[in-house]
Nucleic acid binder design. Structure first.
Lengths: 149, 149
DNA sequence: CTTATTCCTATTAAATTAATAGGATTTAAT
DNA sequence: ATTAAATCCTATTAATTTAATAGGAATAAG
């Protein structure tokens, strides 16, 4: 029942980008340093984040990554889904394409997993990156970066 | 964000036991057959379930396993925790012994994970085995076993 | 032209999960 | 007593997923 590092690192990465969004394209190298995540691994996380339309890349020197949308229009749920796939405590109740199960007819544990899925989704969708930025500012002051998230 | 088969198979196993609780000790062999789970694997699942005081074993011929408590006093949450450990979408917000994190001070993503943890726990703790038995009877009638759960 | 960067693909390492195997122990039934 | 049915125990292996690394190609600023 754990999130993998994809989701955790990825959320930290986009939050880092939200906190630094007025600095122009942000290099993975700088995120990697601030967040203590390997640059190569961050690279892999950017692929699904780009595909999901959450970040954009700027190639070449002075390039880097920027958020594709305003932080208040990006929910934690979007980020997590982009990185970990549809929310699904078990495959048969996946948000996307629930896996067919021969036992489905009359399955009574499934209703438990459905409720778990919905409650997770509700929480994740209730937070935007902007919420986290605001929260972060409480600790670090208006203009300082938030390294430890 | 997936449950492992430990939790899924284990819940099916104890529910199977709840549905057959008037039959005396239930052999792993019979659960394995009804549920399509390898007997050896079930054996491994019984260890933590016993330790958690949810099932009792009866050794020797005609032995097997029985629930240690009434189904209405066993929650899905207890079963899942016994098999998967404390609920913790990330280690730093584990129900039991949250892992210390150097970034904890001023960590803003943590409040998200805490809410996720609590919402999962709330759902899992809201269902008892008896609830699932009742639900199951709706499909199969009062006295028939529920094979497909 | 050089440098800094993303991009792309492949590979490896590590960890976890799932399953299997083989035998020791216990106990009911004969 | 003997047998058979079952749990118990430990170790091993197989499979899968996660995490990280490596090496270079493409792009664009200066």
């Amino acid at each position: 029942m754990k999130l993998s590092t994809k989701g955790r690192y990825g959320l930290r990465a986009v939050l880092d980008m939200a906190l630094n969004k007025n600095e122009g394209p942000i290099t993975l190298n700088s995120i990697a340093e601030r967040q203590g995540i390997s640059e190569g691994y961050l690279e892999q996380l950017m692929v699904p984040l780009k595909r999901a339309g959450l970040v954009k890349s700027v190639r070449g020197a002075q390039g880097g990554y920027i958020l594709a949308k305003d932080p208040k229009n990006i929910t934690v749920g979007e980020v997590i889904r982009a990185l970990e796939g549809p929310i699904a405590p078990v495959a048969c109740v996946s948000e996307d394409y629930p896996e067919e199960c021969e036992r489905a007819e009359g399955c009574v544990t499934r209703m438990v997993w459905e409720k778990v899925r919905d409650s997770i989704a509700e929480v994740l969708d209730s937070f935007t990156l902007e919420d986290l930025v605001q929260e972060s500012r409480k600790y670090t002051g208006q203009n300082s970066y938030m390294y430890y998230i």
